[in-house]
Structure formats: C-alpha cells, structure tokens
C-alpha cells in the first residue's frame, strides 16, 4: 500500500474551473489527484460540482455546452484538457454517467458490443464479455433480453460492464448507488473493489452515499459549492466530526438525519 501512494498519480486535476454557457461557474478551482491503482471518492451534496468534475475529466462537458475555462487536467502525464471525449476513452478514461443510461432498445450483449473499441477483435470481445458476465452473473442470465426492461440494479451493472469493455485504466462512476436497495449497493461496490484489486484499475467514485463509499475507497475529497473543502484518507474522513455529523448522519446513516441537518450545514459553509 505504501508504495502505491507515492507513485505518480494516473490523474491530476489542477485548479480547474468549469463554465456552462460561458456564464455559469460550476466548479471553481478544483484540484484532485487519483493515485494509480487506488479508489478515490468524491463526496458532497446535490449540486456541489461532483458530476461537473467528472464530466470535465471525461470530456462530456462539451455535450452540455460547458468548458474548462481555467486549470489543466493531466492523465498519465499528458494534458487532456482540450481532447475529444472519444480520444480520452481510447486513452483509458471511462465515465459511467449518472442515471445508468443503458442503451434501452439493445440487449445487454449488444450494449457491450456497442462499447467495444473499433480495434478489438471478435475473439477479444468475447473474452472481455465473459469476464464481465463473470463479475455480474445476473447480466449473463438476461444477456438477450431488452436492456430497458432490466431492473435498476441490473442496469447499473450493465452500465459498469459497458464501461469495462472499453478497457479503462481509470473508471469513473457517477452515483452508482442512486435509487438502489442497500444489498445491491453492497454487491456493486464489492465488485468494484474486486476489479480494483484484481486488475489494478484506478477508480474515481462520486457518491452521496458517503457511508458506503468510505468503506471501499482509500481517500476521499469533499466538494461543496464547487470547491474542495476537505481531503483525507477514508479513515480520517470517517472519524472527522463534521463529516460524521453532516454526511454520515452521526454514523447511523439514515436519510432523516441528513434532511434535518441540511439547513444547518448551509449556514456553516457560508
């Protein structure tokens, strides 16, 4: 573990600002680093700028008329700030976007095929598919039904599997636990951890469910109002009293706690 931390980060983001429509500043100088082979969490509440941060890294900002107006993003030492989303996928960055967004009118099998890089041969693709079906046996069972009719958990698994076909070195996930039952969240997070450990894939995880996320990551960043307000190891964050109070619900993690503290937290930040 020790040498991993000291290695050159696979991704580094330095004081990045993002503008939407040339006017709205969505993130204001975010700097984060993902060390190679580690799992990092990006925590924070709704609208804090977590998704925008991921889109800046994957290049999907452009589709929403956003752009990086300041700062730089480096992937394995290369500046990728202005690259096309497609080039970044080829380089090894894959973004599992929020809300699952599987190709509903395609079967799971076709979803995986659609994501395969053009250079991948048929036999390589089949090996890759089998690997993904091994991670997610539920998908294998339903590989030829229409993806739009899969359950929420299955769709999330498919979205992750689809990203894995691109053979990423850095996998980014936006709220994979959203709307899923706790046992499914545990299952999916367990698989993410397994992929991270077995393949050495670096993972950047955006989560509102801080409790679950901090169980599997090594470090976390806390983003509020478009800025990084806290950064530390998962252990340190878990024991931090502010985090406990505002994001972990006093350690009990019920939603009602979060709701109750919402207005208080806003005052504390401003």
């Amino acid at each position: 573990m020790q040498e991993k931390v000291e290695a050159q980060p696979i991704l580094s983001m330095n004081s990045v600002e993002v503008l939407y429509d040339n006017v709205m500043l969505a993130i204001k100088g975010v700097s984060i680093q993902v060390p190679k082979g580690e799992m990092i969490a990006l925590l924070g509440s709704n609208g804090a700028g977590k998704s925008t941060t991921l889109k800046a890294i994957s290049g999907l900002l452009k589709a929403e008329r956003g752009r990086v107006s300041r700062g730089e993003i480096k992937f394995e030492g290369t500046d990728i700030t202005e690259m096309l989303a497609q080039t970044r996928v080829e380089m090894g960055i894959c973004h599992v976007i929020e809300g699952r967004r599987v190709f509903e009118h395609l079967t799971p099998d076709e979803n995986l095929t659609a994501a395969a890089p053009m250079g991948m041969s048929r036999s390589e693709l089949n090996v890759e598919k089998e690997k993904i079906y091994n991670y997610f046996p539920r998908l294998a069972e339903r590989r030829n039904s229409l993806s739009g009719y899969l359950s929420g958990g299955e769709q999330q698994m498919l979205a992750i599997g689809r990203a894995l076909v691109t053979q990423p070195k850095l996998l980014m996930l936006d709220e994979p636990s959203l709307g899923l039952a706790p046992f499914l969240v545990a299952e999916i997070f367990g698989i993410l951890q397994k992929i991270n450990q077995e393949d050495g894939m670096s993972v950047l995880l955006v989560e509102q469910n801080a409790l679950a996320a901090l169980e599997i990551v090594s470090q976390g960043y806390l983003i509020e109002n478009g800025r990084v307000v806290m950064h530390g190891t998962a252990e340190a964050l878990k024991s931090n009293s502010d985090i406990q109070e505002f994001y972990l619900g006093g350690g009990e993690g019920t939603d009602f706690h979060n709701v109750k503290h919402y207005s208080r937290r806003k005052r504390w930040l401003s």
């Binding site: 589709a63 989303a85 996928v89 599992v96 967004r101 190709f103 689809r162 691109t166």
Partner: peptide, 14 residues
C-alpha cells in the same frame, strides 16, 4: 443503434 438510443451514453463509451 446505440447512438439513436442515447447520444450522451454513446459519447461516454467512446
């Protein structure tokens, strides 16, 4: 066919 289903998701997988 994937593109017709979802532009954004298509971009996201390259």
């Amino acid at each position: 066919r994937a593109i017709a289903d979802d532009y954004m998701a298509s971009w996201s997988v390259g």
